[in-house]
């Protein structure tokens, strides 16, 4: 970072701090009722209180667990299925149109069906989250496999590589940017669906706890929970960016 970029970043933080100050001012002057809008001081106090009592930490862990399990399951299944469909031209022409039809479906509409099948359980949440999170990765993998440079397949044939070797040595690396972009999108989907499932099924997690706070009009706890959810969203997307730059760094030299 150059010197001026650092100054800009500092100024940008100051602007953000200014907005927090404005929020505090609005809360202090009671322009909006305290019931709806606690000041940042009270939200912060609720955050600290929640973490020292261990209450918020266990809720945070609950949400992270739902999100990561569902996302991980979806990643494995999505990439494997995508590889199977994507590596065969026949499978692509039969299955891909159905996938394209399903893609714009609002995935949360599957929740009632999952509730009918599994009841209000952890299994339901896992099914919903992984079903919702699988699409971006599945479609990205199919697309990535279809877009592999044809000459690479010719090379593989002349080297008499096995089908598995072709998938792992040629198709997957070449589809990696698409797949990673899909994984990033899926993380957001997984977080949203985790919150919805917790709200509906009363599973232990931030989604359920913010709803309870809202019902009891404990707005400080509510804002603390929402801030934490924002932090999860921010940190997970940061981690994906880091993973992308590490895993795909070698490509920068090629393209």
């Amino acid at each position: 970072m150059t010197r001026s970029a650092v100054y800009w970043r500092i100024a940008s933080f100051l602007v953000a701090a200014g907005f927090v100050g404005l929020w505090q001012l609005i809360a202090n002057l009671k322009l909006i009722s305290q019931v709806y809008l606690p000041g940042p001081d009270r939200a912060w106090a609720a955050l600290v209180r929640g973490f020292t009592s261990g209450d918020l930490a266990s809720k945070l862990l609950g949400t992270l667990e739902h999100m990561v399990y569902g996302w991980f399951l979806a990643s494995v299944a999505g990439i494997a299925l995508g590889a199977v469909i994507g590596s065969s031209r026949a499978a692509r022409s039969y299955i891909a149109p159905s996938l394209e039809f399903l893609r714009p479906l609002p995935v949360s509409a599957i929740i009632p069906v999952a509730i009918a099948m599994f009841g209000l359980t952890q299994a339901m949440a896992l099914f919903v989250i992984s079903f919702g999170a699988i699409w971006p990765m599945l479609l990205a993998t199919v697309h990535g496999f279809a877009a592999v440079e044809p000459r690479l397949y010719e090379v593989a044939r002349s080297l008499q590589m096995s089908r598995l070797a072709v998938i792992f040595k040629i198709a997957l690396p070449s589809a990696a940017p698409d797949i990673l972009a899909g994984m990033r999108l899926s993380l957001t989907v997984a977080l949203i669906l985790s919150v919805v499932c917790e709200i509906l099924a009363g599973l232990d997690g931030l989604g359920h706890s913010v709803l309870l706070s809202a019902r009891a009009f404990r707005s400080a706890d509510l804002f603390a929970g929402v801030i934490l959810l924002g932090v999860i969203g921010y940190l997970t997307s940061l981690m994906m960016s880091y993973a992308e730059s590490r895993l795909l760094g070698y490509r920068r030299g090629i393209r």
């Binding site: 913010v210 804002f223 959810l229």
Partner: peptide, 15 residues
């Protein structure tokens, strides 16, 4: 503000 999942605002909008 952007990474806050929209659905997390649900309880705030509700009250």
């Amino acid at each position: 503000i952007r990474p806050i999942p929209s659905i997390a605002l649900l309880p705030i909008a509700l009250i």
